[in-house]
Design a protein around this nucleic acid. Structure first.
Lengths: 467, 467
DNA sequence: AAATTTGTCTATTTACATTTC
DNA sequence: GGAAATGTAAATAGACAAATT
């Protein structure tokens, strides 16, 4: 029996337990999960200390601890020794990256899709290849490391993105997301911790969760990881690596300073961290920045992808791996059956060698700027972050709006966007912002329609009346 | 202190524990893992009962149990209540599906690769498509359910494989292996159990392990699952589904009888099991058999793939899903980023519509028969299972050979094959057999070289002298 | 058919590590 | 900077369930 009376005691969560035949800790976990999903306990809530709950329910602390652990694995909670247990801010957001919905006409400004305005350079290579005598061979099995000249072509384009490397470190994958999955499963193992920005790419969150890898938010200074933050995470959390997006960080659009790049390289070498440098958006920059990998080539696994800058249909990603991890990555890629299509690899490699790929990229940039001008026209008066070459925007909402509610509201009006909650790692309250994908709508007219809808929402004085 | 003296007591494993600062159960697990890898404890060994070990080491039973669980998760052990704990027969086989090794000339007869003799029909479609005005659109993002006419083409070819279905149930994936991954992660969840043949496709084992799904071997009769076996597994293990390969079961080459197909369909409906029917080799058959899915369309998720019968480079798989699972599968596919290349889908769909795909398949069949004739010529006197259209053979070795040793021996002589251990589920001692892939060598001459090497090995009277 | 063997699961005790105040 | 607050992990006891004899 509980010794104290809790009747007049404020507890953020008061589970009503009906002891069934299921295990106690599972019943508690289930109850908590339901209560979070139902909105009875809200994101950000600090739960009562485990000992207090244990006392209240008249069970052992460890039983509560085990129940909480269950929920934490599902991403519903974040617990910190000393501070307590908090309901995650992304507990109620769906972790799926949902596809475009065909049932009802939605304007897609949530998922980041590249600009698709043209692909004549691809078609040109396709025609050329299709007339050659040994095309048939391009429909056999691929290998994660392709052919020598293809690796050399990869070296060439990666140099243009800001990293000078050598062909013996190149591997191919089916796009950036698959590269990330291969790295996390081939080089890291379940239980490892990786430091990330406090707001980061949701695909990283999903993959890490799937593989049992924990993400640790690194504290920032000037919108990028701070040295103290990284060192702290090394010492306190024992992180094994870092995941960074130096060019146009997702979702904040932040471009990492050169000082920070050097700092990360130095710390990585000193603490022997494995840095995953995701250069997925590097080619949006007109002038490339020097990659972190350039400063610490033996500690950085570098990912480059053509999906966002050339054509998603090529499904082509590049990994530059320090030699010591190459074998593990090779096996992971092979084992996951994500070897690349020899045909697609051939097309891309030839476009690089003939330099026609750069023409295509330039056209994409021009189109992106055109779309961004439209964003500026409609939402220019608001606090919108991201330069004219970036294919997404980080929109700090006026105070009267709550990001999650704004996302839902926009959805009801037919525009899909993502609120900051989707990107959160850790227990901090997110900034009140949403991400807008600029190039994802199928036409520029559709983008304009979307922007008008958002503007109207922003101007409606009393959004809560709409509910 | 242990009460009894164990000095004169035979124990199959006598761990020497040096209590370090690591957790006890982890130390024990590590020790056991090392001893298995070192060959100190052999596959098939029955370990001492947990209580006995606990007594011996003077720790609690649960500590041993936890240590064993660790090893079981790694696939090193199989524990059964009542019978004891056994070292897995595949504990020492590498779980990676290793790629062809370029360093040293190996004859590939382990992985099953399709015949690659020609692909003129693919090239033909490729040329045609490349000349059309809107080719460029084929390099955009794909969707897991493609376009209507492509789904209809899928229906068409699947009908030829033995299952008449409708377009609204079709989804596309990057080949059969990815389809399987999507099904296991989208429809099943960690902890679920699936019944399989006692010897099954290693990719299923790997994927299931990765996703925390347990495979339960179903007892057989006449080389196929028995009704009693399935019912038993339902009742005792609470299996949620079955995984079957009715046409040319991998690795036994068994073609499931029509009675068994009907039986599985009936039991699935009665017990509400989700059957995964993998028809990956169905098109090797000249006359299709009626699929299990035909008998129980609402309980069977059907997988069909072009990788083994048309061209691996197309990387194209089809899933026919009952409507109730379609949404989950759609999401899983999308979320895993394994949407199919619109370009490859276009090529394949046109080949189906124009029926040229059948010509290509016929040529593959002819080439397979030619290769199989060679196998018959060299190894005909032995007990080799599998008909002339099957692209692999199940070779029951003469008694004096041990399959695992034979595999290693062949490897040393330059031929890669897989022993039965690779396919085992559960703790039964495997039959003494190896699988030979017939169409995987790059040329028929190379196949002949491989067969000669194997024949020589088989004829060497005293294989143990070679070591 | 009943008793025994054997593995598994849960709640607990206890010691511990980190953060906060 | 030390005490208190708070979450975590290991080892255990004991009840339980399935398989064997």
């Amino acid at each position: 029996m509980p010794v104290n009376s809790f009747e007049n005691y404020p507890m953020s969560w008061r589970p009503k337990l009906k002891r069934g035949k299921k295990a106690l800790y599972l019943t508690i976990a289930k109850q908590l999960e339901d209560d979070i999903k139902e909105g009875i306990v809200l994101p950000g809530t600090k739960l009562p200390p485990q000992r207090e709950l244990a006392d209240f329910l008249d069970v052992n602390v460890s039983t509560i601890s085990k129940a909480f652990k269950q929920c934490e694995l599902k991403g519903l909670l974040t617990a910190t020794i000393g501070s307590g247990t908090f309901v995650s801010y992304d507990a109620t957001t769906n972790s799926y990256i949902m596809p475009r919905n065909n049932d009802f006409e939605l304007i897609e400004m949530a998922s980041i899709l590249p600009d698709l305005n043209s692909s004549q350079e691809i078609v040109e290579k396709l025609k050329q290849i299709s007339l050659e005598p040994d095309v048939g061979n391009l429909f056999t099995y691929g290998k994660p490391d392709g052919a020598l000249w293809q690796r050399e072509a990869a070296v060439e384009i990666i140099k243009e993105a800001g990293y000078k490397t050598t062909e013996n470190k190149i591997l191919f994958s089916n796009g950036g997301q698959n590269a990330l999955t291969a790295i996390l499963s081939g080089v890291f193992k379940s239980g490892d911790k990786i430091g990330v920005d406090p707001l980061t790419y949701p695909g990283m969150k999903t993959t890490a969760k799937m593989l049992g890898i924990q993400l640790v938010p690194i504290s920032q200074q000037n919108g990028e990881m701070s040295k103290e933050g990284i060192l702290y995470a090394c010492q306190q959390e024992g992180i094994k690596g870092l995941y960074i997006i130096p060019d146009y960080q997702n979702p904040t659009t932040h471009i990492m300073s050169n000082e920070c790049r050097k700092m990360i390289a130095e710390v990585a070498e000193e603490k022997d961290l494995i840095v995953i440098e995701d250069s997925i958006y590097s080619f949006l920059l007109e002038e490339p920045r020097k990659s972190v990998a350039s400063y610490a080539p033996d500690n950085v696994i570098y990912i480059y992808s053509l999906s966002k800058t050339v054509a998603p249909g090529l499904r082509l990603g590049y990994i530059v791996s320090p030699l010591k991890y190459k074998k593990d990555l090779f096996n992971a890629l092979y084992n996951m059956n994500i070897t690349v299509s020899p045909f697609m690899l051939e097309i891309a490699s030839r476009m690089i060698v003939s330099k026609s790929i750069y023409k295509l990229m330039d056209r994409h940039r021009a189109s992106t700027r055109e779309r961004n001008a439209l964003v500026e026209k409609y939402l220019g008066e608001y606090n919108i972050i991201g330069d004219e070459n970036c294919i997404f925007k980080w929109f700090i909402l006026p105070e009267k709006f709550d990001a999650l509610e704004f996302e839902n509201l926009a959805y009801k009006k037919g525009v899909r966007i993502y609120s900051a909650n989707k990107f959160i790692v850790g227990k901090e309250k997110p900034v009140n912002a949403v991400r807008l994908a600029v190039t994802s709508t199928s036409s520029i007219e559709e983008l304009e329609k979307g922007l008008i809808i958002l503007k109207q929402l922003l101007e409606s004085e009393s959004i809560y009346n709409i509910y």
